[in-house]
Write a protein that binds this DNA or RNA. Structure first.
Lengths: 266, 266
DNA sequence: ATGTCTTTGTGAACGCGTGCACAAAGATGG
DNA sequence: CCATCTTTGTGCACGCGTTCACAAAGACAT
């Protein structure tokens, strides 16, 4: 759902469906909250409500992990927290590098949710020499030149790309070349990676556009202000030119920053 | 997939599948890039490669929109850009408010991808009185007290929440109360919203955890360092206690900031 | 020990999304 | 005007994910 490569063998890793894996962190968060309130056990119904999912789905998800849980009682919170953490690989420490320390990169560096879940920001990397040495979130920024050495020295296998779109593929290649096998990409680009490397993408602009689509539908169909161009299905040359002439004025390519990413290039 | 409410009627809005809607922005981005290079037409094969998807999938996606495209030739880039933009509702201007101007909120405010795609940051809102009036990305931050008035005055229907987790639900309620019907949530919480309100969630921590899962699998199964606790399926009381005793020391609740969000509370 | 009551775990049905493979459509050249 | 060639649009099959509904399992009271 968020891969860079065209074909992915539907990575059903070990019998645990991908959709289930994506929900485990959700359950873990809800369970952690319960744990902090010293709640000993939860029923699937309660936990599902807290996680915002269907209870049957939750039970089936857990069934892939094993038969934890006691009929008539529910699930032991602490035990389940441990099992999910272990399944997700959160019982070990994952050093992470963030490349591109603009606004977004800095926000990520300051993100508390990383450290509290087994992730550790091992290094911050930026291409701007002026940023080198400057501390962000208590960690000094290092220059891109040292990227490979940083990766290897720290045994980093997870990289976060928060650079402008133009630099993302190049950074990605260097990360992969240095041994990184999992990438979280915030740059609005499709990354090409060799097999065996996982890419997940977070695209703010896309999320907003999806919301806009539903918003437009909610607003109803009657406010069809632009009745000019082809709403039908006749792609005649005439209507095309009309559309092409009418569209750009609206919002398409109004500036040279068509694909500027979430961070300042630095 | 990213809703806050438990039950959603699988919002297949108008015959256009949700999965297709989620890919339209991807196609739009690729098409915009082609448009800037003044490429007149593309084949489904080329465009699919640029967007990182299967060409058959792309053709089927477009078939939901109508029969744009010419057999033997391909798709007219400008025409398609317009059609997709219109379908996504990007031909109109969407005023957006961002609530919670911490690191992440500031990054979002500076995000160029918004303005270039029909979105306009109408206002920045923060609960910290000290931030009021201070300009971020050229826009003065306003105080939460005026939230309702800001929403109504600007006719805002899309809100972005970048506050700490603790404040998210409250902010959400006020946004919805003021008329917002689409929310992009960056706070690590499950939001409860009434029917008719769309919520999409972006959770950095969850993405990383999913990567960690696959990373752990790639590393193989042999490094099973913790051979102590239940790998089998016998949830006996004894093994539970052992697990519960061993786990918390690892990484679960090591601090009181279990769910700190992506921004400083301000 | 037995019965009742709660909650899990899962078999089975259904619907959505994906990808193949091909016929229809149109462009292009002779 | 006809033949050929490219590329679209889609019927079809398959697999994954979701949900229902219920039997099995265990807690708890008597």
């Amino acid at each position: 759902m968020a891969t860079g490569r065209t074909h992915r063998p539907a990575t059903r890793s070990r019998g645990i469906p991908e959709a289930t894996v994506a929900r485990l962190p959700l359950y873990l968060r809800a369970l952690t909250a319960l744990s902090e309130r010293s709640v000993p056990t939860v029923s699937s119904e309660e936990l599902a409500a807290a996680a915002g999912v269907n209870s049957a789905k939750l039970r089936k998800d857990f069934s892939y992990l094993g038969s934890y849980g006691t009929r008539g009682v529910g699930y032991d919170v602490e035990y389940l927290v441990y099992q999910i953490s272990r399944e997700l690989g959160l019982t070990q420490d994952w050093p992470v590098v963030i490349v591109g320390i603009g606004n977004l990169g800095a926000a990520l560096a300051n993100y508390g949710g990383f450290a509290s879940r087994g992730f550790r920001v091992a290094a911050l990397i930026d291409a701007d020499p002026a940023m080198a040495g400057k501390p962000v979130a208590g960690i000094p920024v290092q220059h891109t030149d040292d990227l490979e050495k940083i990766i290897e020295d720290n045994g980093v296998s997870i990289g976060v790309i928060a650079t402008p779109a133009g630099a993302a593929q190049q950074v990605c290649d260097r990360l992969v070349g240095a041994g990184v096998t999992s990438i979280l990409n915030f740059a609005p680009t499709v990354l090409s990676v060799p097999d065996g490397v996982d890419v997940r993408k977070v695209d703010l602009s896309i999320e907003l556009q999806i919301l806009a689509f539903h918003e437009q539908r909610k607003a109803g169909e009657e406010p069809a202000l632009e009745t000019a161009a082809g709403d039908g299905a006749q792609p005649a040359a005439a209507s095309r030119e009309a559309a092409a002439a009418a569209a750009p004025a609206a919002s398409a390519d109004q500036g040279p920053d068509g694909d500027v990413p979430a961070v300042m290039p630095a």
